[in-house]
Design a binder for these strands. Structure first.
Length: 258
DNA sequence: GTTGAGCGTT
């Protein structure tokens, strides 16, 4: 039954894609299939899900075989209450590969790579560029914050787990407002390394051990951690059982340096 | 268990 999107796109040569928005997060393709299939021949239904959690994003793509049926579905299902939520059905504007779509039908079958990768930005993974464009045109969106926050949350957790009281990571200084570096950062890191040696060169005062004594009594490194738990009590240094940390043979070397 | 503008995958 739920074989939609399992084997990838079947054939979008002569199909009309409809974008269904405002659907519940629990609505699946199977729930939309009978609804849309009633008004026409549904070729495929795909609901984008999150890579991390796997939850639906709240919109789906319904591909019809004929435009008239798609149009009818849009006219009939647009504004229909599904699962207690009013859905919005409209023709898809863009294709899976960012192709132009007219009335749900793909005008350009395939973006001919005239110049390979020139007009396109292979840097972006998904639709960051698209989102950015809309984002700028419109206003701030909470959903974006949510996605970003969630994404960072997962990484942050791991990051924190790995090095809790280790030296402050440079990521924080880079500006976590928009930190999504994967390979770009890596290849760029090399250029930056030789391009701006100033950043890399350590402070000559490093020799003086007294530099660690905060006269002002301010430690931005710890406080600007996340704003979530400014209290170091979270670590529970007291309530943490010794067995929690598997000390092998060097409890002093491998343990926290704090 | 939460959220809510938008354009997509084996």
């Amino acid at each position: 039954m739920s074989h939609f999107g399992r084997s990838g796109p079947p054939d979008i040569s002569d199909t009309y894609s409809l974008l269904v928005l405002n659907i519940t997060f629990r609505t699946t393709a199977d729930d939309l299939f009978p609804l849309f299939d009633k008004y026409g021949k549904v070729v495929d239904i795909f609901i984008p899900r999150d890579r991390r959690t796997g939850d639906s994003r709240g919109f789906a793509f319904v591909r019809y075989k004929y435009a008239d049926e798609a149009q009818k579905a849009v006219d009939r299902l647009d504004g229909r209450v599904v699962d207690g939520r009013e859905i919005t059905v409209q023709f898809a504007k863009y294709g899976p590969n960012a192709e132009r779509i007219h009335k749900g039908r793909i005008i350009e079958p395939v973006p001919r790579s005239r110049h390979k990768s020139r007009s396109r930005s292979p840097r972006r993974r998904y639709r960051d560029d698209n989102r950015d464009r809309d984002h700028r045109r419109k206003s701030h969106s909470r959903s974006l914050d949510r996605y970003d926050r969630d994404r960072y949350r997962g990484r942050d957790k791991d990051n924190r787990r790995r090095s809790r009281s280790r030296s402050a990571s440079p990521d924080y200084s880079r500006g976590r407002g928009r930190g999504r570096y994967d390979d770009e950062r890596r290849s760029s890191s090399r250029s930056v390394d030789s391009a701006s040696p100033v950043r890399r060169s350590p402070s000559p005062r490093s020799s003086s051990p007294r530099k660690n004594s905060p006269s002002k009594g301010e430690s931005p490194d710890r406080r600007s951690r996340d704003g979530r738990s400014p209290t170091p009590r979270s670590a529970s240094p007291r309530g943490r059982p010794a067995a929690s940390r598997s000390r092998s043979a060097s409890p002093r070397n491998s343990d926290v340096d704090e």
